[in-house]
Measured scan of single mutants.
Amino acid sequence: KKIKIDLKKGPEGLGFTVVTRDSSIHGPGPIFVKNILPKGAAIKDGRLQSGDRILEVNGRDVTGRTQEELVAMLRSTKQGETASLVIAR
Results as ranks from 00 to 15, higher is better:
Lys1Phe: 09
Lys1Val: 02
Lys2Asn: 15
Lys2Phe: 08
Lys2Asp: 14
Ile3Tyr: 12
Lys4Arg: 06
Ile5Phe: 04
Asp6Arg: 08
Asp6Glu: 09
Lys8Thr: 11
Lys8Ser: 14
Lys8Met: 12
Lys8Trp: 11
Lys9Phe: 15
Lys9Val: 15
Gly10Asn: 15
Glu12Thr: 06
Gly13Met: 02
Gly13Arg: 02
Leu14Ile: 10
Gly15Asp: 01
Gly15Met: 00
Phe16Ile: 02
Phe16Ser: 05
Thr17Val: 05
Thr17Asn: 15
Val18Ile: 13
Val18Ser: 05
Val19Pro: 02
Val19His: 15
Val19Asp: 15
Thr20Asp: 15
Thr20Gly: 13
Asp22Trp: 03
Asp22Asn: 06
Asp22Val: 11
Ser23Met: 12
Ser24Gln: 14
Ile25Met: 12
Ile25Ala: 07
Ile25Asp: 14
Ile25Glu: 11
His26Pro: 15
His26Ser: 13
His26Met: 11
Gly27Asp: 13
Gly27Pro: 10
Pro28Val: 10
Pro28Lys: 05
Gly29Cys: 09
Pro30Phe: 08
Ile31Gln: 05
Ile31Cys: 09
Ile31Met: 13
Phe32Ala: 12
Phe32Met: 11
Asn35Ser: 10
Ile36Lys: 01
Ile36Thr: 03
Leu37Phe: 07
Leu37Tyr: 04
Leu37Ser: 10
Pro38Phe: 08
Gly40Gln: 05
Gly40Arg: 01
Gly40Pro: 01
Ala41Tyr: 03
Ala41Cys: 07
Ala42Asp: 02
Ala42Cys: 04
Ala42Met: 02
Ala42Pro: 02
Lys44Thr: 11
Asp45Leu: 02
Gly46Asp: 04
Gly46Phe: 02
Arg47Phe: 04
Leu48Gln: 01
Leu48Tyr: 00
Gln49Lys: 13
Gln49Ile: 10
Gln49Asn: 13
Gln49His: 11
Ser50Glu: 12
Ser50Val: 13
Ser50Arg: 09
Ser50Leu: 13
Gly51Ser: 06
Gly51Val: 01
Asp52Pro: 00
Asp52Gln: 01
Arg53Cys: 13
Arg53Pro: 02
Arg53Gln: 14
Arg53Ile: 14
Arg53Gly: 10
Arg53Trp: 09
Ile54Thr: 00
Leu55Thr: 06
Leu55Met: 12
Val57Asn: 01
Val57Thr: 04
Val57Ala: 05
Asn58His: 06
Gly59Glu: 13
Gly59Ala: 04
Gly59Met: 06
Arg60Gln: 07
Arg60Glu: 07
Arg60Tyr: 09
Arg60Asn: 07
Asp61Leu: 07
Asp61Cys: 08
Val62Leu: 10
Val62Gln: 05
Thr63Met: 08
Thr63Gly: 06
Gly64Lys: 08
Gly64Pro: 07
Arg65Tyr: 10
Thr66Pro: 06
Glu69Gln: 06
Leu70Asn: 02
Leu70Ile: 04
Val71Asp: 15
Ala72Lys: 11
Met73Cys: 07
Met73Val: 07
Arg75Cys: 10
Arg75Asp: 15
Ser76Phe: 12
Ser76Tyr: 09
Thr77Trp: 12
Thr77Ile: 10
Lys78Glu: 13
Lys78Pro: 09
Lys78Phe: 06
Lys78Arg: 04
Gln79Asp: 09
Gln79Tyr: 05
Gly80Gln: 11
Gly80Asp: 09
Gly80Met: 09
Gly80His: 06
Thr82Arg: 10
Thr82Glu: 10
Ala83Asn: 07
Ala83Ile: 07
Ser84Trp: 09
Ser84Cys: 12
Leu85Trp: 00
Leu85Val: 13
Leu85Ser: 02
Val86Pro: 01
Val86Lys: 11
Val86His: 08
Ile87Tyr: 01
Ile87Asp: 02
Ile87Leu: 14
Ala88Phe: 15
Ala88Gly: 14
